[in-house]
């Protein structure tokens, strides 16, 4: 589904702030793969996502999504096929517009029935209500409320819904539950897993919870200093514990895993 071939990216090249964020990263994601990514601060996890969404163009290499070379495709054109959730729940929704309008925006743009003067129909509204009811947060009764009134967890759940209202070819989750309180985080995480499992969405998820990294999905990647240094699936992954994972990391990277938010226990 997603094929990343030898991409590199250096920011501020030629200045004192020069920072190589990606070094010849290659990654092959099969359709339906659900991979978690862990790594130190500044390892290039978010940069990798931004390379895929097109926030910048890579310096070298190739990105292929579902057979199409998107290396130099513009960001807003790529986003039709890519769902992207951030850690900050405020980034994914328009605060002064109502829940219904936010849903409509996500839906009309991506569903292919997009015409410049299209309006939300009764049928669409019923669909939105059904989808919102699945969140079990009572949002279906607040369709006319501005999104700015919702809590962070509610906004993130809504963003997740909007990103998947039409099934994306790939879903990128960048620590999307990290800014939520534990109970809400768990709820949003469960929703995420349900939606992904139900529709077999190909997904990459950055997490700093090591247990989550091993338990969620079918594959775990580790990044360090702009490289993917570990890629485990199947039996090897099943037998992996947090301790052996950290040991593996030290072997590969030559340093300890350094992430000020890393969670070694708890779930």
């Amino acid at each position: 589904m997603l094929s990343i071939k030898n991409i590199s990216k250096t920011f501020h090249a030629g200045t004192v702030n020069e920072k190589t964020a990606l070094r010849n990263v290659s990654l092959e994601m099969k359709s339906g793969d659900f991979a978690t990514i862990v790594g130190s601060n500044g390892a290039g996890k978010s940069t990798l996502f931004h390379a895929v969404t097109g926030a910048f163009y890579v310096d070298g290499g190739q990105i292929i999504l579902d057979g199409e070379d998107i290396t130099f495709k513009k960001e807003h054109l790529r986003s039709r096929d890519i769902g992207h959730l951030f850690q900050d729940p405020l980034l994914g929704t328009a605060p002064h517009m109502t829940i219904e309008e936010n849903m409509a925006l996500a839906y009309m743009r991506v569903s292919g029935k997009h015409s410049p003067f299209g309006r939300v129909t009764k049928k669409d509204k019923t669909l939105f209500r059904e989808k919102l009811a699945l969140l079990d947060m009572g949002l279906e009764e607040r369709m006319k409320n501005p999104v700015g009134l919702l809590s962070g967890g509610q906004r993130q759940a809504l963003t997740l819904l909007m990103a998947t209202v039409v099934t994306p070819k790939i879903l990128l989750l960048d620590e999307h539950t990290a800014a939520l309180d534990p109970a809400t985080a768990e709820k949003v995480m469960k929703l995420t897993k349900d939606i992904i499992a139900e529709r077999g969405i190909t997904c990459l998820m950055v997490t700093h919870n090591m247990h989550q990294a091993l338990e969620t999905g079918n594959r775990t990647l580790m990044m360090n200093d702009g490289r993917i240094i570990l890629d485990i699936t199947g039996k090897e992954r099943e037998s992996m514990t947090v301790d052996t994972l950290l040991e593996k990391f030290r072997e590969q990277a030559g340093t300890r895993l350094d992430n000020d938010r890393i969670l070694l226990s708890g779930r």
Binding site: M97, N102, L105
Partner: peptide, 28 residues
């Protein structure tokens, strides 16, 4: 009427959250 159509919503969202707009395949 216009500000509730697909284009109108996109214009409103552009000023409200440019980040989200790019992620919704709208050309800001």
């Amino acid at each position: 009427w216009f500000l509730n159509t697909s284009s109108g919503l996109s214009i409103r969202a552009t000023g409200d959250n440019a980040h989200m707009v790019k992620a919704s395949s709208i050309n800001p």
